[in-house]
Design a protein around this nucleic acid. Sequence first.
RNA 1: UCCGGUGUCGUCCAAGGGCAGGACGGAGGACUUUGAAUCCUCUAAUCGUGGUUCGAAUCCACGCGCCGGAACCA
Length: 638
Amino acid sequence: MKTPTRSEPESGAASNFLREIVERDRAQGKHGGRVVTRFPPEPNGYPHIGHAKSICLNFGLARDFGGVCHLRMDDTNPETEEMEYVEAIQRDIKWLGFDWGDKLFFASDYYERLYEFAEQLIREGKAYVCSLSEEEFRTQYRGTVTEPGKPSPYRNRTVDENLDLLRRMRAGEFPDGAHVLRAKIDMSNPNMKMRDWPLVRIRHASHYRAGNKWCIYPLYDFAHCLSDLIEGITHSICTLEFESNRELYDWIVEAVGAKDPNNRPHQYEFARLNLSYTMMSKRKLLQLVETKTVAGWDDPRMPTLSGMRRRGYTPEAIRELCDRVGVAKNNSIVDLALLEHLLREDLDKKSPRVMGVLKPLRVVIESIEKGKVEEFDAPLWPAEMDRAGSRKLPFSREIFIERDDFMENPPKDYHRLAPGREVRLRHAYVIKCERVVKNEAGEITEIVCTHDPASRGEAAASGKRVKGTIHWVSAAHAFECEVRLYDRLFLAEAPGSLEDTAKELNPLSLQTLRAKLEPSLAASKAGDRVQFERLGFFFADPVDSKDGAPIFNRTVGLKDSWAKAAAKTAESTPTKEPKAEAKKEKAPAKEAEKKELSAEAKALVAAHDLAPADAALLTEEPALRALFDSALSAGAPA
RNA sequence: UCCGGUGUCGUCCAAGGGCAGGACGGAGGACUUUGAAUCCUCUAAUCGUGGUUCGAAUCCACGCGCCGGAACCA
């Protein structure tokens, strides 16, 4: 029997176990019906797409249940935190579309109150100052995961002694590590977090915000739950790795006097977002920045919100992803293809269509007289969108087309230009390839065509039907412009396994080229979005673009079923007998997997000049790959 | 190994004793002056073994796999 407590989405977001908990709590009148959540980042790095899920969850829950969501900087570690990160966090949350109103807080503002709680715990016999070194405690007292620990020799200090020591810790009388304040719980508890976990440590370090006021700093388990308590948080949502901290959370909150479980914060855990081909470790992202492997936290290849923003991702697409991936307690890796799908879906509505040729091939249309210039009025939106707007498109005897749009010996189902074949130039004429011009090296330098004057323009005057339509730019009018083609930063589907992230990088993650764009694009301003027809969605780089000299980032390519099919036949064509047999036996599921691996293999070929077969082997044999990688790092020639 | 968590189409998420469903991906097709978009069709799963029950993804038992926890990080 279905119970009426099950929720239907009120706002687009599908239901999940956390929404159900909030609904149930509200129905039961817990917390007086209030809903107060919080997003508690530590300002030690730029927020990434994984944080976006937490942001959407916390702010979304508050929005949908008439509550509020606080933004609280969880800044308890003076050694890693900086104002730059605080600012980045605020900027990115706003960009994502959420608002904390006046509810901006800092754990560092609570240091005095946390200190008072510490004294209170001591007075009530629930905490003590331990003078064991970190190593002594770990090796001699803490026990192991399978064996209980034993009490610290300092566990039974008197209240007065503990108070005196804590005050002198605060006063700066002791060096780092000399003493630590511990919760007095249970050294034989099977949960290690309950074995007299440290609450406050000595650290003679200047804090980015508190300055030199303190030389003792609260630890996460002490600061976080009490900050929640101070702010009246009702639902404290965090990720799975904090599950065993929850018992300590409850213990501390209750120990300082919040006895009513219906009226104090509770912690709930969910599985963080992981994306294929993406790494979320803040530590490793910082490493990429510090080693200048990428241009900065906002490098368009970074999974940071600032990087994705600069690449051209939209907050709508990211929010939609967070809604669509759901909330559960299952560790999982979401397919990057889903995000790209949602991105295209959003960009499709926002990007006027224009033309640009990335890798130009000159075409001379000999049936058009020299010096003649025609102008087409070309719509900016596809006809089915029924949307106003157009731009002028000059056309002349010499144009550029994409190199990929011509093949001298095309396969049967190639719809583009080839000797003797016809294609339509988008918004213009049908042309026919008459001959190919090559240089001494045998490379194609130019294509000579004729055009069909009756096929002019948008309306199909001649009624002529050709299979292919290609984009082009008039050579004399082309606007030459820098275009940056971005691809996934990492080769592996689940990067992060190697300590040295540099070895996991995709050598083709950025290609910079000089493209020939239609002249209307010369007026582009930073932040403009366009679709280069048949190529992808592009975004005028908000940092490097200048007036009259925009730089276009490829946000995401268009789906390309031709390229996909072509890649597949290329893969199967050179296959020899024995391999063909092996392939036949493979389940269809295995096939998709194989294709991904071969993309990785291709990159290996490009990066290290390997034979394709060797590269394939490397990608299929993790042990071999590890050997290869370590040989590489040892300086072996690759 | 101890504690905690978790196992459902290739991927992510639903189904809370009663028709295993959606999205992405993949395959095929329609349409097409973007090999895009759109539309249609198809594809494909309950970790295992017992048990309870008219009926089990769901409840019980025993296994197995994966993840997290033993920082004076968060």
